[in-house]
Amino acid sequence: MKLIKIKRKTRLEKRFTPKMGKLHTNVTYIQKRLFNIIPIETVHKYRETYYGEIKACEDCVLSK
């Protein structure tokens, strides 16, 4: 049995970019998990644009 596993999880989130305004997009999180239950850290998160490009989430800010 492995202690640490890598898991991907996709969620629909609200994002805000200065050029496009409000945006609803699928954001994929890659996380390290202990015993496949407890999340230890988020390794990377990215989103896919309307045109199929993959972008990191650091370029857009969460809207509230």
Rank of each mutant, 00 (worst) to 15 (best):
I37C: 04
H24E: 01
I38C: 03
H24I: 04
R33M: 13
T10W: 01
K32Y: 12
P39A: 03
L62S: 08
V61M: 11
N36M: 13
T17R: 12
I38P: 01
H44P: 07
E48C: 14
Y46I: 08
F35E: 07
G21R: 12
V27H: 02
Y50T: 15
K55D: 11
L23F: 05
I38V: 05
C57H: 09
K7S: 03
T10R: 02
T10M: 00
F16Q: 00
K7W: 00
T28W: 01
G21C: 07
P18T: 15
T17H: 11
K5P: 10
C60R: 09
I30A: 11
Y51A: 06
M20Y: 08
Y51W: 11
V43Y: 12
H24N: 01
N36E: 05
V27M: 01
I37P: 00
I37V: 03
K7R: 03
P18G: 10
T10V: 03
I38D: 09
T28L: 00
N26V: 03
K7Y: 02
A56N: 14
K19G: 01
V61K: 10
R11E: 10
K7V: 07
K55Y: 09
H44Q: 10
K9L: 04
T42V: 11
E58S: 09
K19C: 05
I54R: 12
N36C: 06
Y29G: 12
Y51T: 10
L23Y: 10
T49Q: 14
E13L: 02
R11N: 01
G52D: 08
I6H: 09
E41L: 12
I37G: 00
T25A: 10
E58G: 06
N36W: 13
R47S: 04
M20S: 14
L62F: 13
Y50S: 15
Q31E: 07
T25C: 10
L23A: 01
K32W: 09
M20H: 14
K55Q: 14
V43D: 11
N36P: 06
L34N: 00
L12E: 00
D59W: 15
P18S: 11
R33N: 15
K45W: 05
K9R: 03
F16H: 03
F35S: 06
K9E: 04
K55G: 11
Y29T: 15
T17C: 12
R11A: 04
E48H: 13
L34A: 02
D59R: 06
T25H: 09
Y46F: 13
G52W: 14
I38N: 02
C57N: 14
K55M: 13
M20V: 15
S63H: 14
K14Q: 02
F35M: 15
L12P: 00
E58V: 04
Y50V: 10
K32S: 13
R33T: 11
Q31Y: 07
N26F: 15
G21P: 02
P39R: 01
I37R: 11
Y46N: 14
G52S: 07
P18I: 07
I38Y: 12
T42P: 01
E53D: 12
D59I: 13
K45N: 09
C57L: 14
R8A: 06
E58F: 15
A56D: 14
K5R: 04
H44F: 06
M20W: 12
T28F: 02
P18Q: 14
R15N: 00
R15D: 00
T25R: 08
T25K: 06
F35L: 10
H44N: 10
G21E: 10
